[in-house]
Design a protein around this nucleic acid. Structure first.
Length: 442
RNA sequence: GCGGGGAUGGCCGAGCGGUACGGCGACGGCCUGCUAAGCCGUUGGGCGUUGCCCGCGGGGGUUCAAAUCCCCCUCCCCGCGCCA
């Protein structure tokens, strides 16, 4: 949520940000219309309430003296009726104002590229050596900057085929029991999953992040504080007949953990590493990645969350992306980091980096990490403030994937296929207890 | 799930139909070799800022008037029941 004062005092500034996001700036005028109507009515209400309060005190005094109060009592009743009328009018305007206010997207940081389309997001960095087919080389070069690559002669098998061939997952039976985008993981993949989680946790605990397993369901008030409204339709599962929503990432409960709190400056930054299942409806993704475990209704994710002083959030964003890159490098997965452009940025983020791993079977970069600076957008919705000299200020909140299990598993399967086995990255072997997953019945 | 008790400012407590009181802490000032003590002031939000309105967990209601009475909800404590 943006500061209503900023919108009142500098509407052109806010409109400019909407234009940069390729959104309609006129919504700001509509908001201001409701805002000024609300404030005008409120002024009348307060004047009437003042009269009411004075008369009410007068009644109290008269009653004490035993005087008749019938007439004045009637007057107050009149005033109260008028107040009630105005209040409902004010409420309507305020509600409309807040609906727009809650939907307005965040401001943009200065270094967000202004463009539309994922393919136009600038590449910040690349790492590793991508396995590229000659037929895909032109595309690869377009998306990879000056990333190293080695030419391969044949396309590796898709993770979907490998899962079946190696008996590592049962997608078909999951479809029978739960539907599309569900899965049974089996055998070594179960162990690989827990290994990945523990590996990522250890990496971040080592860096001073506090490990947290949060509630997997949270109330609407908390969810609204961290997400935009479109998420409720497209992403979030609701528990029937309860005020509870399944989290789509531990960012949701981790950031809202401090809602309605005033934090002391000396306890900042709060650095958390959360681990939880993540539940997603994927309502807007019909037809995309329908096979396998790349895009599914739930997966585990290790997530980084920082709550910081406003001056420090831009630096902490670099720390978060760097932590995520450390993990990708330890897993030897070739990747690029892109700066998400204004047209593709979600409403809550003021800036976002994605890490995309090169997937040799798909011959594409695919998103595995997303790292956002939300400035005070979530903190203002959740009333997370910092006490400091000269008054209270809203905190800044940041979040970044450390490691999402299913997509990382796909990346490992695609990148480390050998003849008859899948190699486990060296850094993971202490966690899995095995260094390869072998084909059982070659 | 049932019964009982509770939720008041950063924290602790009072008030239990007549318009929020006290303490602690914090901040500012005075005093003072220094520190401490002491004294004075400020310390929920909003604005249209000599002032006014709102605010006593959240939402409704009764009343001229609600922290106070009534109803619903949330959370905490105690007891009972159930349970991995």
């Amino acid at each position: 949520m943006l500061d209503i004062k900023l919108i009142r005092e500098n509407p052109e500034f806010v409109k400019e940000h909407l234009r940069k996001r390729f959104e309609d700036p006129n919504i700001v005028d509509e908001l201001l219309k409701y805002d000024s109507q609300w404030r005008r009515i409120l002024k009348d209400i307060e004047r009437l309430r003042h009269i009411r309060n004075e008369k009410s005190i007068e009644i109290g005094q008269k009653v004490k003296r035993g005087e008749d109060v019938t007439a004045i009592r009637g007057q107050v009743r009149e005033i109260n009726n008028r107040i009630k009328e105005l209040e409902s009018l004010a409420e309507q305007n305020l509600k409309k104002r807040d609906e727009i206010l809650m939907r307005l997207p965040n401001l943009l940081l200065d270094d967000v590229p202004i463009c539309e389309g994922e393919e136009n997001c600038p590449v910040i960095r690349t790492w590793g050596v991508a396995k590229v087919l000659e037929s895909s080389l032109n595309d690869f070069k377009k998306f990879a900057g000056d990333m190293d690559y080695s030419l391969i002669q044949s396309r590796p098998e898709s993770h979907v085929d490998i899962l079946e061939k190696y008996d590592l997952a049962d997608i078909e039976r999951a479809g029978k029991v739960a539907g599309a985008r569900f899965y049974y993981l089996k055998n070594e993949l179960v162990l690989l999953e827990t290994a990945l989680i523990r590996f990522a946790l250890d990496k971040l605990i080592e860096k001073g992040y506090v490990p947290v397993e949060p509630p997997f369901m949270i109330r609407r008030a908390a969810m609204e504080g961290v997400t935009d409204f479109s998420a409720f339709e497209e992403m979030i599962y609701r528990i029937e007949n309860e005020d509870l929503y399944l989290i789509a990432t531990s960012e949701h409960p981790l950031v809202s953990m401090h809602m309605n709190e005033i934090l002391e400056e000396n306890e900042l930054p709060k650095k958390y590493v959360g681990v939880s299942p993540c539940f997603r409806k994927e309502a807007g993704a019909h037809g995309k990645d329908t096979k396998g475990i790349f895009r599914v209704h739930h997966f585990y994710k290790v997530e980084q969350v920082i709550i910081s002083a406003p001056e420090e959030s831009e630096n902490y964003m670099e720390e978060l992306i760097s932590n995520a890159e450390d993990i990708m490098r330890a897993l030897e997965l070739p990747y690029r980091v892109i700066n998400i452009c204004s047209g593709e940025l979600g409403a809550v983020a003021a800036k976002k980096y994605d890490i995309e791993v090169w997937m040799p079977a798909q011959q594409r970069f695919r998103e595995v990490v997303s790292c956002s600076n939300c400035l005070d957008y979530q903190a203002r919705r959740l009333k997370i403030r910092i006490r400091r000299k000269g008054g209270k200020v809203y905190a800044h909140t940041l979040n970044s994937t450390a490691l999402a299990t299913t997509r990382t598993i796909v990346a490992i399967i695609e990148n480390f296929q050998e003849d008859g086995y899948i190699k486990i990255p060296d850094a993971l072997v202490p966690y899995t207890g095995f260094d390869k997953i072998k084909l059982k019945n070659p």
